[in-house]
Each structure stands twice: as structure tokens, then as C-alpha cells.
Simulated assay, not measured.
Amino acid sequence: MRGEAWLFSGVALFFGVTCAVYAVFAPDPAGIAALALSGLMSALVAAFLWRQAHRSAPRPEDRKDARVQEVSGRRGYFPAGSYYPAISAAGTALLGLGTVQGLWLFLIGVGVLAPGVYGFVFQNPDPER
């Protein structure tokens, strides 16, 4: 969790500095509010991750001397080749375009996205899971 905590701490610091600079050079209340809220939300996530990192034992990802064999159990099913990501991406793109162009394209996007999501959910060939 420490790596993720450092990442979100850096994001919170970036948004804090950006908000301060933006407030000095462009006194736009909407931009200041957006940057301040982005900084506060990322700081909230960083605080949660730091707390979890201190409460739990270090994961293998957090230790420098960790080995690959320490991770036990099955982590997931990752097929070698699958068309479902491309189908889902095309459906999502059509949904986005449909919100701008019209309901007909949005409905086509729903029709393309539904098989992609269905394939993602039921793609695992393992009958035990």
C-alpha cells in the first residue's frame, strides 16, 4: 500500500500547488474550487492508503526482498487473446458519440456494449469459479 499512498500523496501535492498558483494568477472561483476539491479528494485517498499501510502487514509488493513465489493462489483468468476488450471499447465509444449525435447511435452503442460486457463476465472457462 505504500506505493499507492506515495502516488496519491504526490497527486494531492500537485493539485495543492496548482490550486495555489491558479488562485494567484487567475482568480476564477470555479477553477479554484475544482482544483481544491481535486486536491482534497486525492488527499483523502492518500490518507486512507497510509492508514491501511500502517495497520496491515507489508505486502510482497512493498518489500524490496520479496520474491515472485510469495504470492500464492490463483490471481485471475487472463486469456491469451480475447475480442471482448475491443467490442467493449467500440460500444463505449458509440455510447459517447450517441450522447452527442442522437439516441439512435446511443442505442446502437448499447447493443454493441452488451455482448462485450457479457463476454467479460462469462469468459472464464473454469467451471469451479
Rank of each mutant, 00 (worst) to 15 (best):
F8S: 02
F8T: 05
F8C: 05
F8I: 04
F8H: 03
F8A: 02
S9G: 02
G10A: 13
G10Y: 10
F14D: 03
G16I: 05
G16H: 07
V17F: 05
V17C: 05
V17E: 04
V17Q: 02
T18D: 13
C19E: 15
C19H: 12
C19V: 11
V21T: 11
A23N: 12
V24C: 08
V24G: 07
V24P: 08
F25H: 14
F25N: 12
A26K: 14
A26T: 10
P29T: 04
P29I: 01
G31C: 02
I32P: 09
A33T: 02
S38P: 06
S38Q: 13
S38G: 15
S38L: 14
L40K: 04
L40W: 06
M41I: 09
M41F: 11
S42P: 01
L44D: 12
A46W: 04
A46Y: 02
A46D: 07
F48I: 03
R51L: 13
R51M: 12
Q52C: 11
Q52H: 07
Q52S: 13
Q52D: 07
Q52N: 12
A53I: 11
A53V: 11
R55G: 07
R55F: 10
S56C: 05
A57Y: 07
A57C: 00
P58N: 03
P58Y: 08
R59M: 09
D62Y: 08
R63D: 00
R63E: 06
D65P: 07
D65I: 07
D65H: 12
A66G: 09
R67M: 10
R67Y: 06
R67S: 08
V68I: 12
V68D: 12
Q69A: 14
V71K: 04
S72C: 09
S72N: 08
G73Q: 05
R74A: 15
R75M: 15
G76R: 08
G76M: 15
G76E: 12
G76P: 08
Y77H: 14
Y77A: 06
Y77F: 09
F78G: 01
F78D: 09
P79S: 06
A80W: 14
G81V: 15
G81D: 13
S82R: 15
Y83M: 15
Y84F: 10
Y84C: 12
P85R: 13
P85K: 15
A86D: 02
I87G: 00
A90H: 02
G91K: 11
T92S: 14
T92P: 03
L94G: 00
L94N: 00
L94H: 05
L95F: 05
G96K: 01
G96V: 01
G96A: 02
T99I: 00
T99F: 00
Q101H: 05
Q101I: 03
G102P: 06
L103G: 02
W104E: 01
W104D: 01
L105N: 08
L107C: 02
I108E: 01
G109Y: 00
G109W: 00
G111P: 00
V112H: 00
L113F: 03
A114S: 05
P115E: 02
G116A: 13
G116S: 11
V117F: 07
V117N: 03
G119H: 08
G119V: 04
V121T: 00
F122Y: 12
Q123M: 14
P125R: 11
D126P: 06
D126R: 07
D126S: 06
